[in-house]
């Protein structure tokens, strides 16, 4: 069962998760840097939704799967992520809540680290197979 053991789907998901968290990180740091800008509205990205969209197979190559063991089509390249204006409270100057942005920064950092750690362990597993398989 190559597909069950394969690194494809997990690798794809983790790679996409890191890309999305990276993108979200830049959005959050942007919000923080704009916290002194009058009438600035913070930008946000829905991680769950973005990942779900990123994992959708590319529509261009529909492959028929007549057997569950057939390879499933790979997800296409990440399209533009859905960035929206964050719902937040007017603070008399703009809409940036610095505590919230810092929390999101920590949150996002932890998500990124979790994804990269999982990716690293996947690679370690692969290395182990290569090393031990030839013996």
């Amino acid at each position: 069962m190559p597909d069950k053991l394969s690194f494809e789907s997990t690798f794809n998901a983790l790679e996409r998760a890191t890309t999305i968290t990276q993108h979200r990180h830049s959005l959050i740091t942007d919000n923080i840097s704009e916290s002194d800008t009058p009438y600035y509205r913070p930008k946000e990205l829905d991680f769950k939704k973005a990942l779900a969209e990123a994992m959708e197979p590319a529509a261009k190559a529909p492959m028929a799967q007549t057997d569950p063991k057939h390879l499933s089509p790979e997800p296409g390249p990440i399209q533009g992520m859905d960035v929206f204006e964050e719902e937040s409270e007017w603070n008399g100057f703009n809409w940036v809540n610095i505590d919230r942005e810092m929390t999101k920064l920590t949150e996002n950092d932890l998500m990124y680290r979790t994804a990269t750690e999982a990716l690293l362990r996947k690679i370690t597993l692969l290395k182990e197979v290569i090393r031990e398989g030839g013996r």
């Binding site: 809540n97 505590d99 919230r100 929390t103 949150e107 932890l110 979790t114």
Partner: peptide
């Protein structure tokens, strides 16, 4: 993920103290 919730609770504390 669990830690996200914990962080949100702490964030609400920060917000309230700032107010």
């Amino acid at each position: 993920m669990g830690f996200l919730k914990t962080l949100d609770i702490s964030a609400s504390g920060l917000f309230v103290q700032r107010k």
